[in-house]
Design a binder for these strands. Sequence first.
DNA 1: GTCTATAGTAAGATAGAC
DNA 2: GTCTATCTTACTATAGAC
Lengths: 184, 184
Amino acid sequence: MVLSEEQILVTLTDVFRQYGYEGASLAAIAEATGLAKASLYHRFPGGKAQMAEAVMDRARVWLDTVALVPLRDQSLPIRDRVLAMTRQLDAFYQSGEKSCLLDALSIGEAGSALRRMTRDALDLWAGELAAAVAAAGYGEEDAARRAERAITLVQGALIVSRIKGDPAPFRRVLAELPEQLLGG
Amino acid sequence: MVLSEEQILVTLTDVFRQYGYEGASLAAIAEATGLAKASLYHRFPGGKAQMAEAVMDRARVWLDTVALVPLRDQSLPIRDRVLAMTRQLDAFYQSGEKSCLLDALSIGEAGSALRRMTRDALDLWAGELAAAVAAAGYGEEDAARRAERAITLVQGALIVSRIKGDPAPFRRVLAELPEQLLGG
DNA sequence: GTCTATAGTAAGATAGAC
DNA sequence: GTCTATCTTACTATAGAC
């Protein structure tokens, strides 16, 4: 059976964020996707490194074309825009039951291309979030700090939720994110 | 040359938090410690799993006997106690240049014993921090939320700093931790 | 308690048939 | 584009000498 590239990338994303880059063996990937290892190499001649880069590229595209889109909709109140972003995050992380992709792919001896991609994704997220907050009337620097703190809370909450085996900390952070970004 | 158990655990801690559990190969551990693989097995018959558990156990002891000690010193103002804890964290994480051990050892297929140890360490930290905040006059539930949020910020900041290759986010979070815990 | 040497296994990756 | 079978390497772990 022939799977679509999209279906494979969804599965790869799950495997990488569950096991991390090193922990995700080709055997595990083959089993999760239902494809033989040779078939994976047919689609990703660069092997596991290319698979991880494809996953990260798709994550950046998702950030750019889905999660961050509501932030740019100036017809909505800023608080609603932020709220729409948190709903996308909630879906991507399944309310805290899935681990963070940026974390999983930035640990260990990830290649330099992958490192750059995780950094770019983080910068994209932080930049657009800061711009949205600044557009709400905050100073550039204040907005940048609020955006950085929001992202920090999301990343941290995903770790705390994973370690505790309890999605509640992530849900709490997500619920308080609009106030964190726009309050005070 | 015979290294002390403590010297080995210091090195193991560094290797595990740099590469993660899966990424830390015995070859890398042997090179970092200067011991042959067989010598490592002499000291840790349970192999890599036992090494990681020993590292995590030492981290819990450090938390209990070093980092959290100032929190219990009721002769000092609460803000100074929290500040003393942040100084210990700053030293352990070398101002954000070292990754988070709890993160590195909780990702992937870490054994159930290791999982329990990371969770226990997190609970110990959260519990004592919440108790200290509560002793400053906050309600139990409010104190627990503030403690959870502080730990979330520290974890998240370590990830952001690692991805960006810039310790500044971690330093900022640490500097704002007393206000985060006790302000408002 | 250290080492060299090696066993046994699982990893990433490839060849070639269909 | 898929597969089975295989190659090579690197891994975890052990044996046995000093």
